[in-house]
């Protein structure tokens, strides 16, 4: 719960000297014992900052990630697909909400996080700076982008920070349909007309490499990885998860009848894993820096929606001010049947 944490810093300042070492030892012991850290527990400032950064980035990714798919809602080629896509994009808004809530348990409001996003001071996943050029891209996003996200997210269900882990449990459960619908969509195209098949292959060609980049830079170049692993915010390294994803995708691509655009993919008997080609990290860095195909467009739409919605949010706040009894009077509508106090 977010609001109850605000006094934490003040409390910490009152403590006698040396108390921090004791607290830190207790924190380390809890993490080592695989216990969850909860919002009001003492935690190192760097742990808190790292969590807020990661949860905010994750939440931003969910809501920016609505755009490339929402781009196709109005053109979905069947009513069934239209319903599925709308439900999926809606889930992403919901997942953004869960994650902003989790971040708010550390005392950082959603408005503040959104301001940072809009000002370009916090990031979202670079994958969403690529365009959705054809309908097949909706399938490729479901299969590859959501597939990569799930590979990343499943271990986060055991993240050391309780609210984040709980949000991820909920998200992973709900997302299980996202990947399947994408795969099914591509399968239908792959078995369809030559033009549909070509559309599917083209989408996989464009989304494969950016999906691999979603796991982040290689372990030896990842700034935050080691500390996050020690704190059990992260459970596996970037390269480990990327390898796992490649191994999962190769047979799935075969079943689809589509080719992954990497001539170097082959089974390595010795490692018991697939070898694969070299990722173009220069492209990754460029997109990260803001030079991707859609960076400005995505952030621009997000800012515009927020600014154009300001009068709506203000109106509802003004109405509440006029019509709500003081906050202490229990709202009649919620649990006013006396059950809450029973």
């Amino acid at each position: 719960m977010a609001a109850v944490t605000a006094d934490q810093t003040a409390q910490a300042a009152d403590r006698p000297q040396g108390a921090d070492e004791v607290l830190e030892a207790a924190f380390d012991a809890a993490v080592a014992a695989d216990e969850r850290i909860e919002p009001r527990d003492w935690m190192p400032d760097a742990y808190r900052a790292s969590l807020v950064r990661q949860m905010a980035q994750h939440a931003h990714s969910e809501i920016i990630g609505m755009q490339p798919e929402a781009n196709w809602i109005s053109r979905a080629p069947s009513l069934r697909r239209k319903a599925i896509l709308m439900a999926k994009v809606q889930d992403e808004a919901g997942h953004g909400l869960y994650l902003y809530s989790a971040a708010e348990t550390l005392g950082t409001g959603r408005e503040e996080l959104l301001d940072k996003l809009h000002a370009g001071r916090q990031r979202y996943s670079s994958i969403f700076n690529y365009p959705t050029l054809t309908w097949a891209d909706v399938g490729a996003i479901g299969w590859l982008v959501d597939g990569a996200a799930i590979t990343n997210q499943v271990p986060l269900c055991r993240c050391s920070y309780g609210p984040y882990a709980r949000a991820m449990v909920r998200i992973c459960k709900e997302e299980s349909f996202h990947q399947r619908q994408g795969y099914e969509l591509l399968l239908t195209l792959s078995r369809g007309t030559p033009a549909q098949r070509e559309m599917a292959q083209d989408a996989v060609n464009r989304w494969w490499w950016p999906s691999l980049m979603m796991f982040g830079p290689p372990d030896d170049a990842s700034a935050h990885s080691a500390q996050s692993m020690a704190w059990k915010i992260k459970r596996h390294s970037n390269d480990e998860l990327r390898q796992r994803f490649v191994d999962i995708c190769v047979p799935q691509a075969e079943a689809l009848g589509l080719t992954l655009p990497d001539p170097d993919i082959r089974w390595n008997e010795e490692r018991g894993q697939h070898d694969f080609g070299t990722i173009d990290w220069k492209e990754f860095q460029e997109v990260l820096k803001g030079n991707g195909p859609c960076n400005e467009q995505r952030l621009g739409q997000r800012r515009r929606a927020h600014e154009e919605g300001a009068w709506v949010r203000d109106a509802a706040a003004a109405y509440a001010e006029k019509h709500t009894a003081p906050a202490h009077a229990a709202p009649r509508t919620a649990a006013g049947n006396g059950e809450a106090t029973a």
């Binding site: 609505m66 009513l79 709308m86 994009v89 808004a93 919901g94 909400l97 154009e308 709506v312």
Partner: peptide
């Protein structure tokens, strides 16, 4: 459905999509 990604607040993204899905 055209509101997706443009709503004034996240909670309303979810609400408008629910209505759109009912109607569809």
């Amino acid at each position: 459905g055209e509101w997706a990604g443009h709503a004034p607040v996240l909670e309303e993204e979810v609400a408008l999509a629910n209505i759109a899905l009912d109607l569809l």
